[in-house]
C-alpha cells in the first residue's frame, strides 16, 4: 500500500484510497460460524445444512454434532459477499450465526 505522507491529494482522491482498502477487505477470505443454542432442534439444523449447503446426510450430521458438542462450527468459506449471503440465510432459518475473517 502506498503512503499518504506528505501528500497533496484532495479529499476526493484520498477517498479512493479508502475505497481501495475496502475492496481489498472484500477480497480477503471470510467464514460463517454457526453457534450452539438450546432451542434449534438437531433434526432441523441437519435439514438446514443439507437443504441450503447441499451436504450429504452424513456430512450435515457431522457439522450439526460439531455445533452441538463444540459450541460452534464453520459452515462456509468464501469472499465477503458470499459470507454475507450465507450468514443472512442462516438467520432466516433462525440459527445463531456470525461471519468472521478466515484464519
Amino acid at each position: 500500500m502506498s503512503s499518504a505522507q506528505g501528500s497533496t491529494l484532495s479529499r476526493e482522491e484520498t477517498d479512493l484510497d479508502s475505497e481501495f482498502s475496502r475492496l481489498l477487505s472484500a477480497q480477503r477470505p471470510y467464514q460463517v460460524v454457526v453457534w450452539n443454542d438450546p432451542v434449534n432442534l438437531m433434526t432441523y439444523v441437519s435439514w438446514v445444512f443439507r437443504s441450503y449447503f447441499g451436504h450429504s446426510k452424513a456430512r450435515a450430521k457431522e457439522l450439526m454434532l460439531q455445533v452441538h458438542h463444540q459450541g460452534r462450527a464453520v459452515v462456509s468459506h468464501g469472499p465477503r459477499e458470499k459470507a454475507e449471503q450465507d450468514v443472512t440465510a442462516m438467520h432466516q432459518f433462525g440459527l445463531q450465526a456470525t461471519l468472521e475473517e478466515a484464519e
Binding site: T43, G54, K57, K82
Partner: peptide
C-alpha cells in the same frame, strides 16, 4: 422436519463445502 428429511435428495457435493 423428520418427514421432510426423508424427501431430501442424497447428493455427495461435499468437495465444495460452501456451495449453496
Amino acid at each position: 422436519f423428520s418427514a421432510m428429511t426423508e424427501f431430501l435428495p442424497e447428493e455427495e457435493t461435499d468437495e465444495d463445502m460452501g456451495s449453496a
